[in-house]
């Protein structure tokens, strides 16, 4: 049914074509202004310019040198993500199902959660060397906590009365898991998995920038250390393409459709 609201039907609906034109105009204006300003008002050393950046990307694509970095970022991201998710969910289920232990260790986990995980990178590098393992360990250390808290919240969301009710009706343990436990946990897991992917990508790129010899994060850091600003921006553009290809289909903006919090 219609929910009454301010003269909604008297306001004109936006014409999607006009919106599209305005979006394109904004984009062209932005790129045009960038091209114009560079070298005239701001030295290209700082902001490069769109043509040079496009040239660098073209070169990377033509000689194929970009793929080693893209592949490295994707591999690190997903390995860290999967390891962290598996551990986080496992820990969440284990502690969720033994609430007394959970109550005892909660402050310890919260304290570790408060630590900015990137600070662990030097430690991991000393333990595992510069390479895939230390980066994967760092990404996993971020994802673990997010999925631990999501799983825990899901387990707490299980309706005990409903389980008792189903038991009385003679449901088996497996049936109860399928009909009550899983439906309670799954939405939380889904949110946790979606949110933590963004954090995982950030961590991947940071770990590459801090200690690595490949990956898009490394490419940004390396170009910057050479004061090659076109390279920096080109790498950022490639990263933007990659990140939006991963995040946008997942509706990363929609995750903010409710002011929910993952932790605690």
């Amino acid at each position: 049914m219609w929910k009454g609201s301010v003269v909604r039907n008297r306001q004109k609906a936006l014409n999607p074509r006009v919106v599209l034109v305005q979006q394109l105009a904004f984009l062209i204006l932005l790129i045009g202004a960038w091209q114009f300003v560079s070298g005239r008002l701001i030295p290209p050393f700082y902001i490069s310019n769109p043509l040079d950046i496009a040239g660098v990307i073209w070169k990377w694509l033509a000689d194929g040198s970009i793929w080693v970095h893209v592949r490295s970022t994707i591999v690190t991201l997903f390995m860290g993500y999967l390891v962290g998710a598996a551990l986080g969910i496992g820990l969440g289920l284990a502690l969720g199902l033994s609430p007394r232990t959970e109550r005892i260790v909660a402050p310890f986990i919260a304290a570790l959660y408060g630590l900015p995980k990137v600070a662990l990178l030097p430690l991991f590098v000393i333990f595992f060397g510069i390479g895939l393992v230390s980066k994967v360990a760092l990404v996993a250390s971020v994802v673990i906590f997010l999925l631990f808290y999501a799983t825990l919240a899901g387990v707490r969301d299980i309706d005990r009365d409903m389980i008792d009710g189903l038991r009385l009706m003679g449901a088996s343990g497996e049936e109860i898991t399928r009909k009550v436990r899983m439906p309670a946990i799954l939405p939380w897991l889904y949110t946790g998995l979606r949110t933590s992917l963004g954090y995982a990508l950030t961590t991947t790129v940071v770990s590459e920038a801090l200690s690595s010899n490949r990956g898009l994060g490394f490419l940004i850091e390396y170009s910057a250390s050479q004061f090659h600003s076109a390279g920096v921006f080109a790498a950022v553009v490639v990263l933007l393409v990659l990140s939006s290809a991963i995040m946008v289909p997942l509706g990363m903006l929609e995750r903010r459709s409710k002011p929910t919090r993952l932790s605690h």
Binding site: S5, V7, N9
Partner: peptide, 19 residues
Amino acid sequence: SGCGKSTVLNMVAGLLAPS
């Protein structure tokens, strides 16, 4: 319910324009 009574009020309140 659903017979449009509330719609009448919305129009008098100026929240909705008649077609």
